[in-house]
């Protein structure tokens, strides 16, 4: 999928190595989603028949659910963005390998994409 490592404009990326990490990040994101959902599910089961406690738990669940899901979404977004950068890097390498005048263009265009 990705070409072999070759420095581009001062950047040196080993796609296979980075993809290995982003795969792990995606698995971690899934675990975060699962544990977040499990926690909220356990919270809303905690009333034990008390209406007033149950109402407080439901309110907490509503307040905390966005935060419970946020970590997973963030990890996923970082993995997505990093893989986007890899694709841009790969494209720049392909253009350099063409040996055409586009190589410099590719390098210049690539650089800011991973400069986040």
């Amino acid at each position: 999928m990705y070409s072999r490592r070759r420095p581009v404009g001062g950047w040196a990326i080993s796609p296979a190595s980075v993809l290995d990490v982003t795969s792990e990040t995606r698995r971690a994101a899934q675990r975060l989603a699962d544990s977040g959902n499990d926690t909220i599910a356990a919270v809303v089961r905690g009333g034990g028949g008390s209406a007033i406690v149950q109402a407080a738990l439901d309110d907490f669940a509503a307040r905390a659910t966005p935060l419970a899901q946020w970590s997973s979404a963030r990890a996923q977004a970082v993995a997505d963005g990093t893989e986007s950068a890899l694709r841009a890097y790969d494209q720049a390498q392909v253009e350099m390998a063409d040996g055409s005048d586009r190589s410099q263009v590719g390098s210049d265009r690539f650089a800011p994409r991973i400069a986040w």
């Binding site: 990326i13 990490v21 971690a28």
Partner: peptide
Amino acid sequence: EATTSWFRVADGYSA
């Protein structure tokens, strides 16, 4: 764990 394992990204990413 996600944060710690993410540091390994530096092994293959230099910029």
